[in-house]
Design a binder for these strands. Structure first.
Length: 578
RNA sequence: CGGGGCGUGGCUCAGCUUGGUAGAGCGCUCGUUUCGGGUGCGAGAGGUCGGGAGUUCAAAUCUCCCCGCCCCGACCA
């Protein structure tokens, strides 16, 4: 490809809308353009990278036994009603001219289960893994980061069908390996973490995280045993929370007019948040329950509902709180609280002389102590994990890092097959529900995650496997015949050897070409300049820009060798993870 | 959905407080110059000031309503 023919509108200035490095760079390099919030066009270079990402995801899924299909985006309301997911608020819904409602596919459990229940009858046809790479729609409450969290995006979604748990285990392991290999080939550092399944359902599920400081998700990793989990899922060991030996001070009351939040109370009383106990009133299946966590911690609602073994857990209404505690929201506390079950986080056990709401508007208790002033009905791990928490699997300590979720795999078991009554006839002659797994890989999100994890001040740095071009020939002065001849020769020789190469022969200053080449992040740069008159060119990697001179006769061969080495390195990385 | 901010040429932004001729830089076009890190010089094109209503002799500027976009939070299948 010749740069003069290529549509890649690069921007010198950063569009005001972009915050994340990857978003800014994708816009500046002319890879994507926004049409509306969370809705993007992929321009030639962005689309080219996207297709390379897709191809790798497809290859690995095929190798794991997946069969590619393509399901509709437009899906009738009845299908969604079968599983109750019509009420999901991120589902895009639309009405047709005759008043029928449709959902735009966000994931395709319903459709694929419908396909399978119609045409798969026998255990002999299992296991089955069907997948697609397709545009998905989600009415995100808040799109952000360009294509990181979009409302229309491209995902590979795969679904496995087995007759028993052993089969599911095997299918799951195969797909986990396939995705691991794919991400390794995409040249990113990633970790697999335990995760929350959300409303997809099922118990076992794991996420693939690309480590990046700007990631939306907080991930905890044990520095000893390697346990890793999304903070929203991460368990915390009940360890190191011995009762305090601090002598108990007498219980006291402080006036705290209008001080409702932790921040206000700590500021007003000049007490650190660690000395506060937050009391959160919930309603679980109609019954009130009080949850206690340290003032600087967050309650983990998922852990709460799991512990209570209830699906429906809601913050109590302000009216309910007034009725129960006798005080407005913001002044609840465990002392003197009646007819409410009190559940406390393990960590509270190590606290003494702490501050709580006084169950009286505009007042807080000081020097509250366990047992003396109130009783806890149950101890549990109910807070969101954070840096420094004890590992649940070993004696280690967990460290927090940020990550971008680029894949999520689930054992959904019979959640959908039961809801949709999808059954097979097993060997014993009995009807059974399919045991399912589902596996999602964010294709368009990877377009951003790769440069998010791999860029410098000058632009993106693409791995060889998905780079928009493998090499770029910078013809610095097209009017210089020696340079023109050398550049065209290298360009053509590389093409003959199957290299995906760009020739920048634009009538531009050399500075523009260097800047654009860096911005685009093409891994190998071949600079054809003054040295051309001596029959030499300079080759360098975008990564480090360490240049080396090559004589023209050997240039193409050397460059091919560099490219092959890079490709091999990525494939070897894939072999290592699997 | 709650809080905050923004909307003026393709891009980044000034002008708005205190109403009166719509600006700069970059980009773009033409000429010229230069040719290994977004050249120098000259000329030029390009704007319903997000939309609507109102106040006023007069609105980018003041008032109201609506729309869009961004950030923080909630949420995130």
């Amino acid at each position: 490809m010749r740069a003069s023919q290529l549509f890649f509108p690069t921007l010198r200035e950063v569009p005001a809308e972009a915050e994340l490095p990857s978003h800014r760079l994708l816009l500046r390099a002319g890879f994507i353009r926004k049409l509306a919030a969370g809705v993007y066009s992929y321009l030639p270079l962005g689309y080219k990278v996207l297709k390379k990402i897709e191809a790798i995801a497809r290859e690995e899924t095929n190798a794991a036994g997946g069969q590619e299909i393509l399901m509709p985006s437009l899906q009738p309301v009845e299908l969604w009603q079968e599983t109750g997911r019509w009420d999901v608020d991120v589902l895009f819904k639309l009405e047709d001219r005759s008043g029928r409602w449709h959902g735009l596919g966000m994931t395709h459990e319903e459709v694929v289960t419908d396909i399978v229940r119609r045409d798969v009858r026998s255990y002999k046809e299992l296991p089955l893994n069907l997948y697609q790479i397709q545009t998905k729609f989600r009415d995100e409450p808040r799109p952000r980061g360009g294509v990181i969290r979009a409302r229309e995006f491209i995902m590979l979604d795969s679904y496995s069908f087995d007759r028993d748990d052993e089969g599911l285990d095997l299918s799951y392991r195969k797909m986990r390996r396939a995705f691991s290999r794919a991400f390794a080939r995409l040249g990113v550092d990633f970790i697999i973490v335990e995760a929350e399944s959300g409303a997809i359902g099922g118990k076992d599920n794991q996420e693939y995280m690309v480590l990046a400081g700007s990631g939306e998700d907080m991930v905890l990793r044990c520095d000893q045993c390697g346990y890793a989990a999304n903070a929203e899922r991460c368990e915390i060991a009940d360890r190191g929370y011995e009762p305090s030996d601090e002598p108990g001070e007498p219980l006291d009351v402080a006036d705290t007019p209008g001080m409702k939040t932790i921040e206000q109370v700590t500021g007003f009383l000049k007490t650190p948040p660690k000395k506060l106990v937050k009391t959160l009133i919930y309603e679980a299946d109609g019954k009130p329950i009080a949850a206690l966590v340290r003032g600087d911690r967050d309650l983990n609602e998922a852990k709460m509902s799991r512990m209570l073994d209830m699906d429906k857990l809601e913050m109590a209404s302000p009216e309910m709180i007034v009725k129960l505690t006798g005080a407005e929201v913001g002044f609840s506390g465990p002392v003197g609280l009646k007819n409410v079950r009190i559940v406390a986080d393990y960590e509270i056990r190590a606290m003494a002389n702490f501050v709580t709401g006084a169950n009286k508007t505009d007042a807080h208790y000081l020097n509250v102590n366990l047992d003396r002033d109130f009783r806890v009905d149950g101890w549990a791990d109910i807070r969101v994990a954070s840096d420094g928490d004890p590992c649940p699997k070993c004696a280690g300590v967990m460290r927090a890092t940020r990550g971008i979720e680029v894949g999520h795999i689930f054992k959904i078991e019979t959640k959908y097959s039961k809801a949709m009554d999808a059954t097979l006839l097993d060997e014993d002659g009995r009807e059974k529900h399919f045991i399912m797994g589902c596996y999602g890989l964010g294709v368009s999100r990877m377009l951003a995650a790769v440069p998010e994890a791999n860029h410098d001040k000058d632009g993106m740095i693409w791995p060889m496997s998905v780079a928009p071009f493998e090499a770029v020939v910078l013809l610095l002065n097209p009017d210089d015949e020696a340079q023109l001849g050398a550049a065209v020769r290298v360009y053509e020789e590389l093409q003959e050897r199957g290299v995906d190469v760009l020739l920048d022969e634009r009538d531009e200053r050399s500075g523009v070409k260097f800047k654009d080449a860096d911005l685009l992040g093409i891994p190998v740069q071949i600079v054809v300049g003054r040295l051309a008159s001596e029959g030499k060119v300079e080759v360098r990697l975008r990564r480090d820009k360490q240049g080396r001179e090559l004589v023209l006769d050997e240039a193409a061969r050397e460059i091919v060798s560099i490219i092959e080495t890079e490709k091999r390195r990525l494939l070897e990385a894939a072999d290592r993870v699997s």
